[in-house]
Computed example of a mutant assay.
Amino acid sequence: MPKKRTPRQRRAAQQRARLQRRELARQEEFREEHTRMVLERQGDPRFVQRTRGADGTATLTWDAESELGREIREALQAQREAFRAKFGRDPGPDDSVFFDPDADEPTPMGKRHWDEGMTAMIAAAEAAGLDPAYIHAWREVGYIVTSENEHLFSAAEVQAYLDAVARHQDDDEDIDFAGSVEFSAEGLRELVDETIAIPSEEPAWRIVEALDYADDPQAAGFAADTVAAVLMAWLTGAKEQASADIAGPAIQWIRQHLDDEPADHAFQLAGLLGSPLAPDLTVEQALKRLGDAFLPALVWLTAGLVATEADGDVQWLRQFDPAIDPEEN
């Protein structure tokens, strides 16, 4: 007989199921939008058009006077001049646009030169302060998708390219957990705002996910401490200013708009808002009791507070921002 799942396992399974449903909905919406764009651009001279011949070959046409058309014309002219300089004649209809610069006769560019060209473009992009992830993705999938040509690819091809870009951006970006408290507070305000706007418990779990995937445990620990410090400063600051019960309405909002479980977790920390009914816990005791839900519970409690005390305006929290210098930790 299979073992009964723990509450944490059930919560994780429910979270995965919700995320899967949202991802399926997002994919369906993306496909619908892409199909609509393809239909809208058919025959529009402002965009590249592709026609297929009876023999299966494809022909691309574009407006020579458009910005894209000028860029293509200049690139082709540069290749024509390079071909003429190398071989002493203009390229013929059977000659490749991109040729092997080391060959004595016109020969299509091989993989080595193509890779060298890609490497040079990546270096040039980095030197110019541009994101090289788009070129890395081009090298990986074999094509590049832009706003001008995305209608020539299927939705699956566009998604594959965008996924490759995202992977390379993730590879190139190290999470800077040692950012300023100001940045952390701003990011947390956006997270609280998203929690209220959807409304959903899911945004708060992204904090836990980011910390779990951190390469530097020490930096992740510092980040967790900073996030907790900012959230608790907001909550205790609001409590000191309050002249009436603010914990009860906040918990009620969470229960009504998120779910019973987030409300129960947030209630464990409601003493920060002065609730006489909440358990009197130290931070260590709260961490032990809530586990991974500790930081999300702080976010949910803050969201309930902002929703009920500030009509959802997260900028209201600025008055309680902590004055902490992360360099002192």
Rank of each mutant, 00 (worst) to 15 (best):
R80Q: 12
I144F: 14
E81H: 09
D260C: 03
Y143W: 09
Q256E: 14
G117R: 12
E81I: 04
H34Q: 10
A214I: 09
W300A: 04
P2K: 11
Q42C: 02
N149T: 13
Y161L: 00
D321G: 04
R84D: 01
G69D: 03
Y143Q: 02
F99N: 01
L235W: 06
E105S: 12
L39H: 11
A228W: 05
A297C: 08
L269Y: 05
F183N: 13
R50I: 12
D44C: 02
R70H: 11
V145H: 05
N149M: 05
D170R: 15
A286Q: 04
F87E: 06
R70L: 11
Q14D: 14
E29A: 15
E309P: 03
M37C: 07
D216F: 05
G248D: 12
P199D: 00
W234P: 03
D215K: 14
D44K: 06
R52P: 03
Q285K: 11
A263Y: 07
G179F: 08
R289V: 05
F222L: 14
L287C: 08
I122A: 03
G248H: 08
P45C: 05
P45G: 06
I122W: 04
I144Y: 15
T226I: 05
R73S: 14
L24A: 15
S96G: 01
H113W: 10
A125L: 09
R112C: 00
P322I: 06
R16Y: 07
I72D: 02
A223C: 06
D292K: 14
L130P: 05
I144P: 02
N149L: 01
H168N: 00
L290W: 09
W205K: 10
A223E: 10
Q256H: 12
M121I: 08
P203S: 08
A164L: 01
T236Y: 02
A247G: 07
E202I: 13
Q218D: 14
F320W: 11
E157Y: 01
A17C: 01
R22V: 05
L305Y: 06
A82N: 10
A25M: 09
W253Q: 07
P217Q: 03
E23L: 10
A219Y: 00
E105L: 11
V158T: 07
D225H: 13
Q9P: 06
P106G: 08
G56P: 06
T226G: 09
M37G: 02
I135V: 11
T107R: 11
Y134K: 12
A228H: 07
A303W: 04
V165S: 03
T236C: 05
Q315K: 13
K288H: 13
W138I: 00
P7D: 00
D292M: 09
A223H: 13
V227D: 10
V208S: 15
Q42L: 13
Q9C: 03
K4V: 13
G88L: 01
Q49C: 01
R8S: 13
H113F: 09
S180T: 15
G53C: 05
H34N: 02
P7H: 05
T107W: 04
Y143S: 01
F222D: 14
L235P: 08
S275I: 03
N149Y: 04
G312F: 00
S154G: 12
E157A: 13
P322N: 10
Y213R: 15
S180P: 03
P249H: 07
Q9N: 08
P45E: 07
V141H: 09
